[in-house]
Amino acid sequence: MSSPRDHRVLVPIDVLEGESVPSTVVDALASVPVVLLGYREVPDQTAPEQARDQYGDRVRTELETLRSVFETAGCDVTSRVAFTHDRLKTFERVTVDESCDAVLLVNPAPVLESVLVAIRSDVNVDHIARLVSTVLEGTDLEVTLLHVASDESRRDAGTELLETAATALVDEGVDSSRVDRRLVVDGSPTDAILEAADDHDLLVVGESRPSIHRYVFRDRAERLAKRTVDPVLVIRGEYLEPAAKGGDGETTAAEVTVTDVVETVEKSDENDGAS
C-alpha cells in the first residue's frame, strides 16, 4: 500500500432549492474530508453582495443542518457559502482554493451498494485508485472498473488498462474479491458508461484535461450527471496545479475571474468572513 495522503471532496449544494446529500452517500464519504459549498446562483442584474444580504442567513442555517449530518457520520467537514453569477466557475475556484481531489455532483441514491469507476486512460490511475480506496474504506461497497474501447483493435490495450487499475486498487488495500472489471467496445463512450451505470449506485469518473471548467462541468461528466440517476464523483487530474497553464494554453481554475461572494462558515456561524 502506498503512503497515506489526505483527500478532500467538494460537495456543492443549492440548499435553497431543497438539494441535499443522500444519507447513503454521506456514509460513503465518512472517511474523506468534505467541503460543503452552499451556493446560490443569481441573475446578472443582481449583485452577489445583495443576494448575500437577502439570503445569507437562510443558506447558512440550511448548510449547518447538512453539516451536522456529515459530522454525525464522523466526517471532517468544512463549510463555505457562495453567491455567484456563474456557479460552475465558483465550483472551480473553490475546488482549487480548498485543494479538493474531487467534486461530487449530487443525484438521489436511495441505495448505495456498488460503485462504477470509468477508466479512460492510464493518466492518473494511481490517483483515482487512492481516492476510490478511501471512499471504500469502512464500507461493503463493491467496485467495477469500466473501460470503453472505441473499436476491437483497442480491446487488448483496454484489458491491460483495467488490470493496471485493479492492481492499483489492491495495492491501496482493497480486497481483490471486491473488484470487478468490465470492458465494452463502443463508439459512444458516454452512452456505454450510462448503460453500465444502470447497474450501479455511484459513478466515478476522472478528468483527462487540465481544466475543471471545460472538462468536469462543460464536458462528459456533467452530461453523465444530467442523464444518470446516480451521484457522480469527478476526480481531478493530479497534474492540475493552481498556478499552471493547461497544455493547450487554456487558463486553469485559479486564474478564472468570476463575480461572486464566497464565505468560509465557522460551525458556530459567529465568525463568518469573506475569503
Score class of each variant (00 low, 15 high):
residue 270 E to A: 03
residue 143 V to M: 06
residue 31 S to G: 06
residue 168 A to R: 12
residue 200 H to S: 05
residue 265 V to H: 06
residue 12 P to S: 09
residue 83 F to S: 06
residue 141 L to K: 10
residue 51 A to C: 10
residue 220 R to G: 04
residue 240 L to R: 14
residue 186 D to H: 15
residue 259 T to V: 08
residue 21 V to E: 02
residue 58 R to K: 13
residue 49 E to T: 13
residue 116 L to N: 09
residue 126 D to M: 01
residue 135 V to S: 00
residue 143 V to L: 06
residue 150 S to M: 10
residue 261 V to A: 08
residue 141 L to E: 08
residue 229 V to Q: 00
residue 267 K to I: 02
residue 115 V to W: 01
residue 76 D to P: 01
residue 60 R to D: 15
residue 226 K to M: 09
residue 134 T to V: 12
residue 66 L to F: 08
residue 20 S to N: 09
residue 64 E to N: 15
residue 139 T to W: 11
residue 150 S to V: 15
residue 261 V to F: 04
residue 32 V to F: 04
residue 78 T to P: 02
residue 112 L to K: 01
residue 109 A to T: 07
residue 2 S to R: 14
residue 109 A to Y: 00
residue 90 T to D: 00
residue 70 F to N: 07
residue 11 V to P: 03
residue 81 V to P: 02
residue 66 L to M: 15
residue 239 Y to F: 12
residue 119 I to S: 01
residue 220 R to C: 07
residue 21 V to I: 11
residue 176 S to C: 02
residue 100 C to L: 10
residue 216 V to M: 11
residue 161 L to R: 13
residue 268 S to V: 03
residue 114 S to V: 09
residue 85 H to F: 05
residue 151 D to M: 07
residue 99 S to K: 08
residue 67 R to S: 15
residue 33 P to R: 05
residue 129 A to D: 07
residue 188 S to G: 03
residue 131 L to P: 04
residue 64 E to H: 14
residue 138 G to A: 05
residue 114 S to P: 01
residue 114 S to E: 13
residue 275 S to C: 00
residue 84 T to K: 06
residue 85 H to N: 01
residue 246 G to D: 12
residue 77 V to K: 05
residue 186 D to W: 08
residue 2 S to F: 15
residue 166 A to F: 02
residue 233 L to E: 06
residue 221 A to F: 11
residue 21 V to R: 03
residue 5 R to D: 10
residue 233 L to A: 08
residue 124 N to W: 01
residue 129 A to T: 13
residue 258 V to I: 10
residue 49 E to S: 14
residue 79 S to I: 11
residue 63 L to G: 08
residue 13 I to C: 09
residue 63 L to K: 12
residue 11 V to Y: 04
residue 110 P to W: 06
residue 270 E to S: 10
residue 205 V to H: 01
residue 46 T to R: 13
residue 104 L to Q: 08
residue 258 V to Y: 00
residue 129 A to W: 11
residue 133 S to N: 05
residue 273 G to Y: 14
residue 101 D to T: 12
residue 84 T to I: 10
residue 21 V to N: 02
residue 30 A to V: 01
residue 86 D to C: 03
residue 228 T to Y: 00
residue 260 D to C: 01
residue 145 L to K: 13
residue 88 L to W: 12
residue 164 T to G: 14
residue 85 H to P: 05
residue 27 D to V: 06
residue 27 D to I: 02
residue 183 L to F: 12
residue 202 L to H: 07
residue 191 D to M: 08
